[in-house]
Simulated scan of single mutants.
Amino acid sequence: MAEAEKFMGSDNVEDILTKIENKSLKIESLIKPYKPIEAIKTALEGYPPQDEQCKFANWIGVRKALMAIKDVVGILRSLNPQYYDILMKYVYRGLSTGDRTTCDQCLKIHEKLTEKAGFGCILRSLADTVNTI
């Protein structure tokens, strides 16, 4: 997760937003040929800094990757367990939007992710107050 270090290493919001925009473009380029595993891995790499503008910009890219998932079970089977907790954090972020389409997709992911990763994944994602998204 070297991307996290890139985000954290820069204090300039404009530099961080540029990196997030590049990441978002990469996610889009992976979604078009339907490479959902690569898109979701790219989306989940690196936490943005605590700046709300950066968090929101990062969420836009992650949401694109989440909404492109058609086979949730297949994605989770292919995804490294190190990503489960952060994925759960983004699922809760999606549920908090109130957007019906986003919430429906996030509920599907939540169900399958809980089956795969267990209830500990939920607890860890809610209890982690340092790495907020």
Rank of each mutant, 00 (worst) to 15 (best):
T102N: 02
K64Q: 13
D104V: 09
L107W: 02
G74P: 09
Y84V: 12
M88Y: 06
D104F: 13
L76D: 07
L107E: 09
L79Q: 09
L113Y: 00
T101D: 08
A68Q: 05
C103D: 02
T114Y: 04
W59N: 11
Q105H: 08
A57F: 11
M67G: 07
K89D: 01
Q105N: 03
K70Q: 11
Y84Q: 05
C103P: 12
I86R: 10
A68F: 08
A65K: 07
V73P: 10
V91E: 02
A57N: 06
M88W: 13
Y84C: 02
T97E: 13
W59M: 10
I86F: 07
V72W: 08
P81N: 09
G74E: 04
L66C: 08
A57R: 13
D71V: 15
Q105C: 11
K64C: 03
K70F: 14
K64L: 10
D85H: 06
S96F: 12
M67Q: 13
N58Y: 09
G74M: 08
K112I: 13
T114P: 15
D71H: 13
T101N: 12
K89T: 03
A57H: 09
R100H: 04
K108Y: 00
I75Y: 00
T101Q: 12
D71K: 11
R100Y: 15
I69H: 06
I86Y: 02
L66D: 04
I75L: 11
E111T: 15
H110Q: 15
M88I: 06
D99G: 01
L107T: 13
D85Q: 14
K89H: 11
C103G: 10
L113R: 07
D71T: 07
K89E: 05
N80D: 09
Y90M: 01
T101H: 10
L95E: 09
K108Q: 08
Q105A: 07
Q82G: 00
I75K: 04
L76F: 03
L87K: 05
R63K: 11
K89L: 05
L76W: 01
V72Y: 13
G94V: 13
A57M: 10
L66W: 12
M88F: 14
I69R: 05
I60C: 05
G94R: 03
V73H: 11
A57K: 12
K89F: 00
V73C: 14
R100S: 15
D104I: 07
K70L: 05
W59Q: 08
Y92I: 01
H110K: 13
V62Q: 04
I109C: 05
I60M: 02
V72S: 08
E111P: 12
Q82T: 15
G61L: 10
H110V: 04
A68N: 06
I69G: 00
P81I: 11
Y92E: 08
Y92D: 02
Y92M: 11
S96P: 08
G61A: 07
T102W: 12
Y90E: 07
Q82H: 05
T114K: 05
L107H: 07
Y83E: 00
W59C: 10
Y90D: 02
R63Q: 14
L113N: 06
V73E: 10
M67I: 05
L107F: 06
A65F: 08
M67W: 12
V72H: 01
Y84M: 03
A68Y: 12
I86M: 02
T114R: 14
L87H: 05
Y83H: 14
L87M: 12
G61Y: 14
K112G: 03
G74A: 00
D71G: 01
K89N: 02
K112C: 09
